[in-house]
């Protein structure tokens, strides 16, 4: 008689993919300096480029802005924001190879004792912005992320909800 394979089906868990996704987002954040910030005023969306950094647990994004800006005013009126971070290179291959993460959450200014901690993270990534950020008119903001939407391969979308 021939040898049988006894092929028992042991389902692969999703875990490896889960930690992979987190890692992918981490690497994307490390590779990118700029992001697109979306705010709104009276229902009119408004998009900007920002220099961003992220917390180690990926639950927060940070950026800096002068207080006189339109985005600051928008956030002041409605803290709900979205941030888009992607690694496109303006090539055909972006459609299949670029990844984009959309974050949704709420923004608030970082103040008091927390400011030094966040500032250290922020300046580690953007040392050339030191003068800008230390200006008394510049606000350091934290986006508390609720959900990340990760898009790969043009149409593949995963959601990561912060626990």
């Amino acid at each position: 008689m021939t040898q049988i394979t006894g092929s028992g089906s042991r389902r692969k868990t999703l875990l490896s993919e889960e930690s992979e996704l987190e890692q992918l987002i981490r690497e994307l954040f490390e590779s990118q300096k700029l992001a697109v910030l979306g705010t709104q005023k009276e229902g009119q969306p408004y998009a900007n480029l920002i220099a961003f950094a992220s917390s180690d647990d990926l639950k927060s994004l940070y950026f800096a802005t002068a207080r006189a800006t339109r985005k600051y005013a928008n956030i002041d009126a409605d803290a709900r924001v979205t941030v888009l971070i992607d690694n496109r290179s303006n090539q055909d291959s972006d459609f299949s190879q670029a990844a984009a993460v959309t974050a949704t959450g709420t923004a608030q200014e970082v103040v008091d004792f927390k400011r030094d901690e966040v500032l250290a993270i922020y300046l580690a990534k953007h040392p050339m912005l030191e003068e800008f950020v230390r200006s008394p008119t510049c606000a350091l903001l934290q986006v508390e992320v609720q959900t990340y939407y990760l898009v790969r391969k043009f149409q593949n979308v995963m959601e990561l909800h912060v626990k």
Partner: peptide, 10 residues
Amino acid sequence: SAHFDIRPRQ
């Protein structure tokens, strides 16, 4: 994952 609840969307 410790930080996220991961769900497929598309």
